[in-house]
Simulated assay, not measured.
Amino acid sequence: MSLPFLSVVIPCWNESRFVAAFLDSVFATTYPADRMEVLLVDGMSEDGTREIVRQYALRDPRLILVDNPGHSKPAALNRGIRRAKGDVVVRLDVHAEYPPDYLERCVRGLVEHPQADNVGGVRISRARDDTLLGRAIALSTTSVFGAGNSKYRVGASGPQWVDTVFGGCYRKTVFDRIGLFDEQLTRAQDREFNHRLRASGGSILLLPEITCTYYARSDFREFCSWTFEAGYWPFRASRTVGHWIGSWRNVVPMGFVLALAAGAAAAPRSRTARRATGAVLATYGLTALTFAARLARQHRDPGLIVALPPVFLATHVIYGAGSLKGVLERT
């Protein structure tokens, strides 16, 4: 089977720590060299990223460095897509590494499933720093308890039609049909685009045999900031575009935070409120400990029993707080 010409689009900004290993994984691909181009769209990095990319481009003419003043991620994606020559566009993330067959599996997935407009796989999370906290943060994003029903995070037993995937491998005609990424959204642009794709009658297919390794944040402060923004943006983006683009998993943490806040407010005056709040916390703690023990056993890392429950709690409370801001904020 002759594979279509492929354009790989990579938004990038100040990624000198990761970009070399990332590009090594991209160029180790089994995809035919004469059937692909790699467009790295850089937001005018100032940390040495551009120099590293230029050195790689000298060795491999498939790599093209595209300037993106202002380093907006949706603008980077759109610049890359506009310059893309391929019939298929795959979006990659610099914080990930890809096995040699990743691109080929993605494209073959599109070819073999003509009803799919976007194909992706499962994202395996690893800690950027191999510390107990780093491992706990990474694994929390792959647990149903931490990530809900997000299949690209928690995995699937077989092919599934889903609401979104990590990155994504698109038919180029999709962008002609429904437009490009919304440049009003500094985050959640993938979510909004995939919602628009599905609303237009398009389909998104997750194939679990397609995998990549993503390096999750290991610094707790950075993780908390990222989690707050992750909770905030589904609601902020929905208000910006004028309709809801999230799912039930985006609402649950906010409900948890509201329940705790209501219980705490009523507890001084109500024994029932104290008991109900205590029951919620006890149930939550037992559930968190159960999932932590399961992951500790699976990964043979006993320290996770201690580290994961507070990471789960921080995830849900901070995400829920971000969601509340997104709901209540007036702009």
Rank of each mutant, 00 (worst) to 15 (best):
D182H: 07
G246T: 09
R50K: 10
E209N: 05
G179S: 05
L308C: 08
R153D: 01
E112G: 06
Y56W: 13
E209L: 02
V257K: 09
Y215I: 05
E97M: 11
T272C: 11
P114V: 14
E46R: 13
S125T: 11
F312L: 10
L133Q: 08
L185A: 14
F18D: 15
G148Y: 06
T164K: 09
A96S: 14
N194I: 06
D24T: 15
R221I: 14
F291D: 11
V19D: 06
R249S: 11
P114I: 11
N118G: 00
L133P: 10
E222G: 06
L180Y: 14
T29A: 15
Y214C: 03
L133N: 06
G278I: 07
R54T: 09
A261L: 12
R330L: 01
Y319Q: 14
K85W: 08
V41M: 05
V41P: 12
T30I: 01
R17T: 08
F256Q: 01
N250W: 13
R300K: 14
W244G: 04
R79L: 15
R187V: 04
R177I: 00
I64V: 15
F145E: 15
L260A: 13
A261M: 07
Y319C: 08
D163F: 03
G263K: 07
L110W: 07
E46H: 08
S143W: 03
D219S: 11
V241I: 15
V317G: 11
I210H: 02
G120M: 00
P74N: 08
D176R: 08
G201C: 04
L258Q: 12
F256R: 03
P61E: 10
K325N: 08
R297T: 09
A33L: 06
P114R: 14
G48N: 04
G326S: 08
R105G: 03
W226E: 13
D42Y: 03
L197P: 03
R177T: 15
P4Y: 14
A307T: 08
D42R: 05
L23H: 01
R79D: 07
V9E: 06
V162F: 01
R300I: 04
W244D: 09
G326I: 04
W161T: 12
C169N: 07
S247D: 13
I318F: 12
